[in-house]
Design a protein around this nucleic acid. Sequence first.
DNA 1: TTTTTACATAAGTAAATGCTTATATAGAAA
DNA 2: TTTCTATATAAGCATTTACTTATGTAAAAA
Lengths: 100, 100
Amino acid sequence: MNELEQVLKAMADKNRLTLLACMKNGEVCVCDFVDVLKISQPAVSQQLKKLKDAGIIKERKDGTWKYYRIAEEISPVVRAVIDTLEADNTCHCGGNSCSC
Amino acid sequence: MNELEQVLKAMADKNRLTLLACMKNGEVCVCDFVDVLKISQPAVSQQLKKLKDAGIIKERKDGTWKYYRIAEEISPVVRAVIDTLEADNTCHCGGNSCSC
DNA sequence: TTTTTACATAAGTAAATGCTTATATAGAAA
DNA sequence: TTTCTATATAAGCATTTACTTATGTAAAAA
């Protein structure tokens, strides 16, 4: 699959756009995403994997927690989407303040 | 459906990205798209409809022919995608030179 | 060590997607 | 008018997608 197509497919979903909106302010852990999306934890992990495989997000492990963030290097297309999204502050998981 | 999501879904497909690449140089008629994509004419019409419904392309009717072009007013996200695409010149249907 | 916690992976299923062929429509030509 | 041509719409089907529940894994706690 073309890289542009993969990136567009990865972002072309309501839930995954919400994940990106949550990460606009910084790192968020998986359990907080579950609270926001109101779908199962495995479903969230699968959606995060699609964004990661497309190179849009990065992960950081800290003990049993895993924090996801928007990648530092993103293409103009991803940049335009992120800029369009309004940040979602309901998931205020600032690095070490995971609510799990 | 969210407008951003609809636009991303409309562009997140190899064939529809090729349609847009063809239109980078200007208007193209449906029959020329059929030659390029190598799928049936109804399939092309259905793909064009998705792009039109998302507001990404516009149409102009001329007799029995129908010409499609990238809309004059497009969002930054669509702009970024179009800029990323390399123009496809195999469909050089300049206004009145349809090959049908 | 065993248990618990946070997350990932696997398998199964319902819904969405993208093609096909068949048919409808609108305009040009005969 | 009838016929042909370009395109659109409808119906059916195979593939993909996005969820679910069940299970696996790795790190912390007991």
